[in-house]
């Protein structure tokens, strides 16, 4: 996954976290799509999956705190989007526990996660940046 300048929302901490999130999701996807036997790749897949998963929770929390701090009017709806996604990730985690980490299921999770994250950062999160920029101008 390529990080692009246009993804930046102009809030340093969030932009850094987004870039880190892209790196971690990319590492996870690369481990899933690497050539070779699934059983041999699985160790790396689980490692990158956990490394990425923890960061999603941290980032969502920090971003929600920031939204509240600036009085972002879309906070409630945005938190709902985060919560829904966390629930979906939770569903996959449960399936991995119950059915095992099959290549097909992990690939399915990876594909969805990638597309979701790109749109969330490139599209939805831009509203936070636009609002924060407007507030700055207002405060001058």
């Amino acid at each position: 996954m390529m990080w692009k300048e246009k993804y930046k929302i102009g809030v340093a901490k969030i932009d850094e976290q987004h870039e880190e999130l892209f790196r971690r999701v990319s590492d996870f996807i690369r481990s899933v799509q690497a050539k070779g036997q699934w059983e041999e790749k699985l160790g790396k897949v689980k490692e990158t999956l956990n490394f990425m998963k923890d960061y999603v929770v941290t980032h969502f929390r920090d971003e929600e705190i920031y939204q509240q701090k600036i009085g972002f009017p879309g906070y409630k709806k945005h938190k709902e989007i985060h919560d829904n996604f966390k629930a979906e990730v939770g569903d996959y985690a449960q399936k991995f526990q119950q059915e095992g980490y099959s290549e097909e299921l992990v690939q399915e999770f990876g594909g969805k996660l990638m597309a979701w994250l790109i749109y969330h950062v490139a599209g939805i999160d831009q509203k936070i940046g636009a609002y924060a920029a407007g507030k700055e101008i207002e405060g001058q």
Partner: peptide, 9 residues
């Protein structure tokens, strides 16, 4: 599954 899932999303 990776490709079709990304497409589905």
């Amino acid at each position: 599954s990776f490709v079709t899932s990304a497409l589905g999303e």
